[in-house]
Computed example of a mutant assay.
Amino acid sequence: MAEAEVPGSESGWERAPEYQGGKRNPAFQASMWEYAASSFRLVAGLSPSLDVLAARLRLNIERGWEDLGPVDAAMFRIQKIDFALSRVEGNPCPDVFVWVSRAQSDVEAALDILLGALGIGREAITFRNNGESGFVDLRNDPQA
């Protein structure tokens, strides 16, 4: 069977992972992280670096991208709970974002399990999503 000839891209097409403003590429590419992140919800931030947290659990960090730019992330499971840790490159906020599966109803228990596995306490949490009014910065008010 002969191999099919595939023509090159059309002149003027934008790169697939970028905003399509001019002569549109028929494909719009999202990163694996963007697809995976839709099944998680952001619940907190942690002060230790992503490298240190990943090393503790011997996780691989994967590189993807999102609207804000390149992102490093590690997705994993502990006690049947799906977690992700992420850090957007160039973000002035140094926090590592903690994501928990949308299927997980008890976020507090999930955070306790994660912190226990990481060997750190709640003092490492820099912000929380309280669900009602949004995110609360805990650096200035650790009781929140």
Rank of each mutant, 00 (worst) to 15 (best):
A4Q: 15
E5R: 15
E5A: 15
G8C: 13
G8A: 14
S11E: 05
S11F: 06
G12E: 00
W13P: 04
W13C: 07
W13K: 02
E14S: 12
E14G: 15
A16V: 09
E18Y: 13
Y19P: 07
Q20A: 14
Q20R: 12
Q20W: 11
K23D: 04
K23G: 01
K23V: 09
K23C: 02
N25L: 04
N25F: 06
P26V: 06
A27Q: 06
F28I: 11
A30S: 02
S31R: 00
S31F: 00
M32K: 09
W33F: 13
E34K: 01
E34T: 00
A36Q: 04
S38A: 11
S39M: 02
R41N: 05
R41A: 12
L42R: 15
A44V: 07
G45I: 01
S47W: 02
S47M: 08
S47T: 10
P48Y: 05
S49I: 01
D51N: 12
V52G: 07
L53D: 03
A54L: 07
A54N: 10
R56C: 09
R56N: 07
L57D: 09
R58N: 12
L59S: 09
L59Y: 08
L59M: 12
N60Q: 13
N60C: 08
I61R: 14
E62C: 11
E62H: 13
E62K: 13
E62Y: 12
R63P: 01
R63F: 10
G64H: 03
D67Y: 08
L68D: 13
G69E: 07
G69H: 13
P70G: 10
A74S: 15
M75H: 04
F76I: 05
R77M: 04
R77G: 00
R77N: 02
I78F: 09
I78R: 10
Q79I: 00
I81W: 00
D82F: 01
D82P: 00
D82W: 05
F83Q: 08
F83M: 04
F83R: 07
A84Q: 08
L85W: 04
S86C: 08
S86H: 06
S86Y: 08
R87K: 15
V88D: 05
G90Y: 10
G90K: 11
N91P: 06
N91L: 10
P92Y: 07
P92M: 10
D95W: 02
F97K: 11
A103M: 03
D106N: 09
A110I: 03
L111W: 00
D112S: 06
I113L: 14
L114R: 04
G116F: 11
G116M: 12
G116R: 14
L118G: 08
G119Y: 06
R122D: 02
R122E: 02
I125G: 00
I125C: 01
T126R: 04
T126K: 08
F127Y: 15
R128G: 03
R128Q: 10
R128M: 12
N129Y: 14
G131L: 14
G131I: 14
G131W: 14
E132G: 14
S133L: 13
G134Q: 05
F135E: 09
F135L: 14
V136W: 03
D137E: 05
L138I: 01
R139V: 15
R139M: 15
N140Q: 12
P142K: 06
Q143V: 14
A144S: 10
